[in-house]
């Protein structure tokens, strides 16, 4: 029997008074492409950030590849993991940010090789060859020596995807990857993501691109006020929503 790659159980998170996640539980299966939709403040980005531990959860647990994240159980209590252990757990996930967050002082190629050489300690020439291959895959073979400031938003985001893939993650997390892009640049990034989905990568995508969700997602999860309201096949959730709140959101977005 296959196990979920990500198991989220009763996760809660507050920022001061604001409750960003309320008792959320969810499974993500290997090879699945999941799109998280919902209004801003609904908790979808927070959920994503909890999985790669940029945000620490207040209660509940998240298992990735069978391993409990961020804490270990001992003697009936939970103890926080060290920074090194958390860093090691993070290697299983790749994160793509809304604002790209490329390293501006490094070229496209250096952005991609930084993690494998510095963190994983792999050989420079081997990593370089892989990085060039990744750049080719995202259609930017010619831009290896360009700095981020010399690239368009869409190109930067594609480099960021290559940077995340270079760590050979089991799970790719996309936090509104096209929200900061000019409309004419959205397509090139979505195309790369579609290709990635076809290759069998497990993906969690926070997005407002409902067209992309309809076409690529195996499952769509609609969140509101820190909770999952409705989930299911894309055609069901987007085409024939059951919940009133989902209907209201979809009619407001489209």
């Amino acid at each position: 029997m296959t196990k979920p790659l990500v198991a989220i159980r009763s996760v809660s998170k507050s920022f001061g008074e604001f409750q960003a996640l309320k008792n959320v539980s969810l499974d993500v299966w290997p090879g699945e492409v999941m799109c998280l939709i919902g209004a801003s403040g609904s908790g979808k980005t927070t959920l994503l950030r909890c999985i790669n531990q940029l945000t620490t959860i207040d209660a509940g647990g998240i298992w990735l590849d069978g391993e409990l994240l961020g804490v270990r159980e001992q003697g009936g209590r939970l103890h926080r993991l060290s920074e090194q252990q958390i860093g090691r757990q993070r290697l299983k996930t790749g994160m793509v940010f809304q604002r790209f967050n490329l390293f501006p002082h490094k070229t496209a190629l250096e952005n991609i090789t930084e993690g494998p050489t510095q963190v994983q300690g792999r050989k420079a020439d081997e990593v370089r060859a892989e990085a060039l291959e990744l750049l080719r895959r995202v259609g930017l073979a010619a831009k290896a020596d360009s700095y981020p400031a010399q690239l368009s938003g869409g190109q930067q985001q594609r480099v960021a995807i290559a940077r995340a893939l270079a760590m050979k993650p089991m799970l790719m997390l996309f936090d509104e990857p096209t929200s900061a892009l000019d409309p004419e640049l959205v397509g090139e990034v979505l195309a790369v993501m579609k290709e990635l989905a076809k290759s069998g990568m497990t993906m969690m995508v926070v997005t407002h691109e409902l067209g992309f969700a309809r076409e690529v997602a195996d499952r769509v999860v609609y969140m509101d006020q820190g909770a999952i309201v409705e989930q299911g096949r894309a055609s069901d959730v987007l085409g024939a929503p059951r919940e009133e709140r989902t209907k209201a959101f979809l009619s407001a977005v489209i």
Partner: peptide, 19 residues
């Protein structure tokens, strides 16, 4: 976001600061 991107590729605080 630069700290976060560095953390996301597995860097610890000191390495992220230095690199």
């Amino acid at each position: 976001g630069q700290y976060e991107a560095a953390q996301a590729i597995g860097m610890g605080r000191l390495r992220a600061l230095r690199r």
